[in-house]
């Protein structure tokens, strides 16, 4: 469903994505792992058209978003997606209910009278209740994260992009969220890309796991194969060792 080929993206002199190739099939969950600042969020934002790649193409259902110029057409393209932001990005002038139901107004034809019920259901899915009338500032970090997730799935998009959905949650809650992501996949057949550092959750939700390093996917494999990978970079990352090729590369990076 999603085909990214040769995606490049730089911020000034900083070359973040350097020819990234990856495909995601309909109904599949792809997990992207990789060190902090290696460009995972940048890639997700390119996919949903928030950032425009400098080169390469990202095709979704045959439409190459990097070529679409018209802002109204990009808006149309984005309707397929739900996006769960790394820091939540909740609207802090609105209540939780208004946040969760926000997309329903613009992405669906569901009458306003049903919004409250839907918002309550989605919040229940992420383990929250009776917070509809609070403001985001009154919630803890983990609660905000879950509200953001509820908001991303409220309009039941065909494809969901999760940016570190379990970071900052306690182990039990992060397992609940992993289950929820699995559930959405099974019940609604959503296609998903999930960025995460949480290897436990990555093995659980991922049909395939891809590792992003220095702007490219250095390995794409299913969870079982990944566990026994030969690639020293991937080994070091999934086992979480201090010593290894990645650390040396980081040092080289500083000298660039």
């Amino acid at each position: 469903m999603i085909r990214a080929a040769g995606v490049m993206k730089s911020f000034g002199a900083r070359r973040v994505l350097r020819g990234l190739d990856i495909g995601v099939n309909e109904g599949e969950t792809l997990v992207i792992i990789g060190g902090s600042g290696c460009g995972k969020s940048t890639f997700l934002k390119c996919v949903i058209g928030l950032l425009r790649p400098d080169g390469g193409s990202i095709e979704v259902d045959g439409v190459d978003v990097s070529k679409v110029q018209d802002e109204v057409q990009i808006a149309e393209y984005r309707r397929k997606f739900g996006y769960c932001f790394q820091e939540g990005a909740l609207f802090d002038s609105m209540t939780i209910f208004e946040n969760v139901s926000f997309g329903l107004r613009y992405l669906t034809d569901i009458p306003v009278s049903r919004h409250r019920g839907i918002a309550r259901d989605k919040l229940a899915l992420v383990g929250l209740k009776d917070i509809e009338d609070m403001k985001p500032a009154q919630l803890s970090g983990g609660m905000k994260k879950r509200v953001a997730l509820a908001r991303a799935i409220a309009a039941e998009p065909r494809c969901i992009l999760y940016d570190e959905p379990t970071t900052g949650l306690d182990p039990i809650m992060s397992d609940i969220i992993s289950e929820l992501i699995l559930d959405l996949k099974k019940k609604l057949k959503v296609t998903a890309i999930a960025v995460t550092h949480d290897m436990k959750s990555a093995y659980k939700i991922g049909d395939r796991i891809a590792m992003l390093h220095e702007g490219r996917m250095i390995e794409v494999a299913d969870p079982q194969a990944l566990k026994s990978t030969k690639n020293p970079y991937v080994r070091q990352f999934i086992e979480g060792h201090r010593e290894g090729p990645i650390r040396m590369k980081l040092r080289e990076y500083g000298e660039e």
Partner: peptide, 12 residues
């Protein structure tokens, strides 16, 4: 705080 990006992703 990426709320502007969030507006884009929520259909407006």
């Amino acid at each position: 705080t990426e709320q502007i990006d969030a507006l884009y992703t929520l259909g407006t």
